[in-house]
């Protein structure tokens, strides 16, 4: 096999220089833009305590944290203790907190209402854990995966969107606590340094 790598390299460089990736229009869902208002804020959703709660009902004086999460996803489970700790902590610091499960339990049995009640009790959720019964709240946010956090400021404008921290699997090896940093900034009226982050997660199992 005779192989010349110089032309290959040059061709690759030329290709990179000439063309930007062309992706299908529907390739990736569009998430809520920075600065956007809380979507469907008045939509009532059933909480694990049986009451109907809307995001507007939990809105905090300094900000509001909406986390799309679920029972079944390994990423949601890996981050669960950290999510609960942050939620319980900042709830007392003027931040409204609500966890939303948009998964269709018809597709993931572990995400049924009873299982949510059990999980919230076991993990001591100090904030509502509600059912997005049509998955339309998740759609309105452009949420795609679990867990996925949206933090709004005191005026109800989106100031942080993304993941919890930079290591789901190994809490001991986290180097940047994105959501904790964003919460600390917004609760003290400061600018958030890193406003958008990503992580892998389970696709939300949207209801039809």
């Amino acid at each position: 096999m005779k192989t010349s790598f110089a032309p290959v390299f040059l061709a690759a460089v030329a290709a990179l220089a000439l063309a930007a990736p062309v992706l299908a229009d529907d390739a990736a869902p569009k998430a809520l833009a920075m600065g956007a208002a809380i979507p469907m804020a008045d939509q009532k959703m059933k909480n694990v305590d049986g009451k109907e709660v809307a995001v507007a009902d939990v809105k905090g004086a300094k900000g509001t944290l909406v986390i799309f999460t679920c029972n079944a996803c390994p990423w949601a489970k890996a981050w669960e203790d950290r999510i609960v700790a942050l939620g319980n902590d900042y709830k007392g610091k003027g931040i409204g907190v609500i966890a939303v499960n948009a998964n269709d339990p018809g597709k993931v049995a572990e995400d049924g209402y009873d299982q949510m009640k059990t999980r919230a009790a076991e993990k001591k959720f100090g904030f509502p854990y509600v059912v997005d019964a049509t998955s339309n709240v998740a759609r309105a946010y452009g949420a795609t995966r679990t867990p996925e956090a949206f933090l709004f400021d005191a005026q109800g404008k989106l100031v942080y969107h993304g993941t919890i921290d930079d290591n789901a699997q190994e809490p001991g090896k986290v180097s940047t606590r994105y959501l904790a940093d964003a919460l600390a900034a917004v609760s003290s009226g400061k600018e958030i340094a890193v406003k958008e982050t990503k992580a892998m997660g389970c696709g939300i199992k949207f209801r039809a």
């Binding site: 990736a28 795609t144 995966r145 997660g201």
Partner: peptide, 11 residues
């Protein structure tokens, strides 16, 4: 980001 910046992380 190394594979595709457009990927939101869904599997």
């Amino acid at each position: 980001n190394g594979l595709a910046k457009e990927w939101t992380g869904v599997l």
